[in-house]
Design a protein around this nucleic acid. Structure first.
Lengths: 124, 124
DNA sequence: CGGTATCCTACACGATACTG
DNA sequence: CAGTATCGTGTAGGATACCG
């Protein structure tokens, strides 16, 4: 437990994590880890996301090399997104994160209630 | 590797992760995992953060029960922040994340260059 | 020292309309 | 189907000043 970790978080790391842990990326990656998806499949899988945000997020993930965009020139066009080998290396970190969230959600909720009951952050 | 993960990301999970993986939380938690810190120690450790953002982030982390705030009523007051047992459970997820970032940064940078060179996202 | 209180601005994000 | 274009808004977060 005392792995003496000297990991720091410099700007490039922060920027990278911002691009991959942002509002929609986690859901998209989680989805694409299970199977390749077309654009509208993703929309249905993540109903809250708008076209615009989905497009933007997909582009960003593609730019970072974690997903791939393949255009099938049928009629009408089909576009299929899939995870890349690099993207697959994200699966473990994401799983760890989601598992943590699932396991600790109750404790977090209790903590919030206690905090809020004391009115220490009435404006949060 | 085929753990058949059916982890989904519903709103509460997303909200929770947003509060803990946001711009400054990772740096703060990473710092507090190593030692308790006073307010201005944290500012020095993370020079880019402003007072306002640091205060806000600390409050949010406190609300979620992952850090503790102890006021030492000396003259002038001292305030010491420390990680809680619940917060310590975050160390592994964070380490996994930072390790991933460190290991894959070069690959990501190459992917970005390739993408940008093709001009596919001239406006990103 | 460890914060609040204001003010301000960029940008993330949603809503809506249109297109090859 | 898979986007692009345009507009409008909320708000995260920086700059600055002040306080117990």
């Amino acid at each position: 437990m005392d792995t003496d970790d000297e990991l720091t978080i410099d700007a490039p790391h922060r920027e990278l994590l911002d691009q991959i842990l942002d509002k929609w990326s986690l859901s998209i990656l989680n989805e694409l880890c299970e199977r390749p998806c077309r654009f509208n499949e993703l929309r249905r899988a993540i109903p809250q996301v708008t076209q615009k945000s989905l497009t933007a997020t997909l582009r960003r993930l593609e730019r970072n090399g974690v997903i791939e965009r393949e255009v099938v020139s049928t009629r009408p066009v089909a576009v299929r997104y899939r995870i890349t080998p690099l993207g697959k290396t994200l699966r473990h970190p994401i799983d760890v994160l989601l598992t943590w969230a699932a396991q600790n959600m109750p404790a977090i909720e209790r903590a919030r209630e206690g905090f809020d009951a004391r009115g220490e952050g009435a404006d949060l």
